[in-house]
Simulated scan of single mutants.
Amino acid sequence: MNLQHLGWQPFFQQQLTLDDYEQAIVARVSAHHRSGYQLLTESEEVSLPMHDSLPAMTVGDWVLLDHQLQFQRCLERSSLFSRKAAGSKLAEQKIAANIDTVFIVMSLNDDFNLSRVERYLALTNEAQVEAVIVLTKADLCPDAQSLKQQVQSLDPMLLIETVNALDYDSVKALTPWCKTGKTVAFLGSSGVGKSTLVNTLLQEQTQQTGAIREDDSKGRHTTTGRTIHTMPSGGVLLDTPGMRELQLANVSQGLSETFAEIEELATQCRFSDCSHQNEPGCAIQKALQADQLDERRLNNYLKLQREQARNSASLAQLRSQDKQLGKMIRSVQNENRSRKNK
């Protein structure tokens, strides 16, 4: 295996110095556990125990090790996916790094949800990564073509593929994005068929799969960690667990791109601070009344705007508090050293 088979690209090559070429070993984070990180080099798999001196890394990161396999530094990322940690916990969770294409997976049964697709698109657009919508379980849906058209209506330029996750010939439609040197990631909610897709693309039973529940057509949550795999096509595949909750934060640009037509309308409102509710001269309300804008899409846009603003402000406040705490700790440490020196 060479570095290109792990997704190595010129962007990362340009960050190496002459000393790095002579003294460093390049590795990629292939898995992240509570106890540490698993890394892949050209020749072996390396375990890197968790330590306070390590930066916060995630699956897909590129790092440099010395010849004793000790951490030196993490390379600058070409892309990063993150979210607010699930639940009430106030923290940012890194999902994956250095991704070229994201397959947003949604099944064509009762899981079908346009608002969820928009949520994932906002995250993907913020990371400036190509998105492909992958619709699965068409065999369980009598109106698959109609639902596909609904997804396409979100953006006429949106790339969409409908596949049978169990059929390799069908899944081959995804291989143009899975060439050597490219890294792709699967995102989607639990039970939409991601693990089945992973197994089919890898042509082996790498991930556990589960049947859908009969009561609500929901799939079972089978993938429990983020892992990297190399594909027969030459690309790198990063699988992620299904996300029951994807709280957005710091994705204002991604939202602007995802809802570009709404933001364009907003520039035409009479008042710059228009809330797009009952104000006179609201271009968005005018478009709604003329059936030129879908009310569901507008409501989701406003909802995601509020969510990302709230979460971004909370995380910014947390970072400020952490910074102040760090200053206080360093101040105490410096004072203690001064006393010892006396």
Rank of each mutant, 00 (worst) to 15 (best):
F103L: 14
I104D: 11
V105D: 07
M106K: 13
M106F: 10
M106T: 15
S107P: 07
L108K: 06
N109D: 15
N109Q: 08
D111V: 12
D111R: 12
D111P: 09
F112V: 09
F112I: 10
F112Q: 06
N113R: 14
N113K: 14
L114Y: 01
L114R: 08
L114S: 01
S115F: 08
S115R: 15
S115V: 12
S115E: 14
S115I: 10
R116Y: 10
V117W: 10
V117H: 11
E118G: 11
E118L: 13
E118Y: 06
Y120F: 15
L123R: 03
N125M: 06
N125L: 05
N125D: 07
E126D: 05
A127V: 10
V129D: 02
V129A: 03
A131R: 04
A131F: 05
V132R: 05
I133V: 15
I133Q: 03
K137P: 01
D139S: 02
C141G: 01
C141V: 02
D143Q: 09
A144F: 02
S146Y: 11
S146L: 12
Q149L: 07
Q149C: 00
Q150M: 07
Q150S: 07
Q152C: 04
S153T: 09
S153H: 13
L154H: 02
D155E: 04
M157K: 12
M157I: 00
M157C: 09
L159F: 00
I160K: 06
I160L: 04
E161G: 01
T162P: 06
N164D: 15
A165D: 06
A165E: 13
L166E: 09
D167I: 02
D167S: 04
Y168M: 00
Y168R: 10
Y168C: 01
V171D: 03
V171L: 05
V171K: 05
A173C: 11
A173W: 11
A173L: 15
P176Q: 04
W177R: 09
W177K: 06
W177P: 02
C178M: 14
C178Q: 11
K179A: 08
K179I: 05
G181H: 02
G181D: 01
G181V: 06
G181T: 03
K182Q: 14
V184I: 15
A185V: 12
A185Q: 04
F186E: 08
L187V: 13
L187N: 08
L187S: 05
L187G: 07
L187D: 05
L187M: 15
G188H: 11
S190A: 13
S190Y: 10
V192N: 04
V192Q: 08
V192L: 07
G193E: 11
K194I: 13
S195G: 13
S195R: 12
S195T: 14
L197T: 13
L197Y: 11
L197W: 13
N199C: 03
N199H: 05
T200P: 03
T200S: 03
T200M: 03
L202W: 00
L202Q: 00
L202F: 00
L202T: 04
Q203M: 05
T206V: 14
Q207H: 09
Q207A: 15
Q207G: 09
Q208N: 10
T209F: 12
T209Q: 12
I212Y: 02
R213L: 10
E214W: 08
E214F: 09
E214K: 13
E214V: 14
D215S: 14
S217V: 00
K218D: 01
K218E: 02
G219M: 10
R220I: 08
R220M: 10
T222K: 11
T222H: 08
